[in-house]
Design a protein around this nucleic acid. Structure first.
Lengths: 201, 201
DNA sequence: ATTTATAAACCGAACGGTCGGTATAATTAA
DNA sequence: TTAATTATACCGACCGTTCGGTTTATAAAT
């Protein structure tokens, strides 16, 4: 059944967003899914294969953001859309996470990224490709905004892009450590909006 | 002997900078130190206790940065000093890391931070305290720069501080993923310098 | 100076427990 | 009846840790 497999992937996703690969045990996955080991290994040949599917499911579908959709919109709209997209995972997954009393940090995919780089040989290239695409989208959006007179600044397109991308990651990281990842969108827009004010014409 | 214990901590430090707590095995620690398990447990009562000492050693000594030293210097000097401090760990530890052929990422303490938050109950508060101190140092340095006419901008002190701090983390994260953590200082200063140009009087 | 006594440093086999994974039986669906 | 699905019992490998014992350094006694 397709449903059962998806159910396993979803359950495992929330676990892998909380803890790293080694910390999530098969017993845990089996218990949380309400299935047995036999049932699990009917659908997946190994824990690693499951992990790969989780990676694909989370990183390369949910994380995917259609930048082209904003190619004819203003830069203001572009970065607001990006801010809205940042915590898709948080919103879609955190509802499944019950507080165990232990000091879990917020669900975040930095775990996944680090683990995936260790476990999946071709992951880094895939990730780099994604990041490059993201960066190019930002750069072209900024370039467009400058050309059509939306913004005006001495800063180069590249550096502005670098600003938006790295602040997104950096603020996310800080909020995760502080246990306040839920504020990401708010914090991001606070900084981005004021920066935007300073460069808009 | 103090030497042996320090030797264990140093060896373990390089390991914990490469892999997370569970991925580093006792066998590995023992082999890399050239000691036996018995010898190890003569100095540490558990793997966790060793990990705690590694945390203290790396995060709260090496990571420590004396912001007060720059209280009478220019903001330009301040952020250059911070940029120089970012990859202290990288420089001091990476020499010990031999390339095993496996796709290790650059040594970085994001592993340590994540693991420490799970394993050590009081770590988060400690970390938050450190981050707050860091942020306050930035804010007061910026405030000073504004007051004495070094910089002039519509951006608030808080947001400028947020810019510097989050870009440091964000760029570091991106470079780790790309396997080019060694470029951190260069990349950081490239962005920071140009931003500085745009706000300096 | 040499022997004796005490402690620190170190070793590696072995332990109990948990890990991911498998073989096989029971159940359900077709 | 046959094939797909789920459950149970079980496996060997490996984990962190323990433990009995050896070696080496330090100090005391003769």
């Amino acid at each position: 059944m397709k449903d059962t497999k998806e159910h396993i992937i979803n359950t495992a996703s929330t676990l892998f967003l909380q803890k790293n690969f080694k910390e999530v045990t098969m017993k845990e996955i089996v218990d949380k899914t309400g299935l047995s080991k036999g049932a699990f290994y009917h659908y997946f040949e190994s824990k690693e294969k499951l992990f790969m599917e989780v990676i694909d499911n989370i990183l390369f579908s949910q994380m995917y953001f259609d930048y082209d959709k904003y190619s004819n919109k203003s830069f203001y709209e572009f970065y607001h859309a990006c801010a809205n997209n940042t915590n898709v995972i948080n919103e879609t997954k955190s509802e499944n996470i019950q507080d165990t009393g232990k000091s879990f940090y917020s669900p975040n995919f930095y775990f996944l990224i680090f683990d995936a780089m260790n476990l999946l040989p071709d992951f880094r290239k895939k990730m780099e490709g994604y990041l490059e695409k993201e960066r190019n989208a930002w750069i072209s959006a900024i370039k467009r905004a400058r050309e059509c007179g939306e913004i005006k600044t001495t800063l180069t397109d590249k550096h502005i892009a670098s600003f938006f991308i790295s602040t997104a990651d950096g603020i996310a990281l800080n909020l995760i450590i502080g246990g306040k990842y839920g504020n990401l969108k708010k914090e991001l827009l606070s900084l981005w909006n004021e920066f935007y004010k300073s460069i808009k014409t």
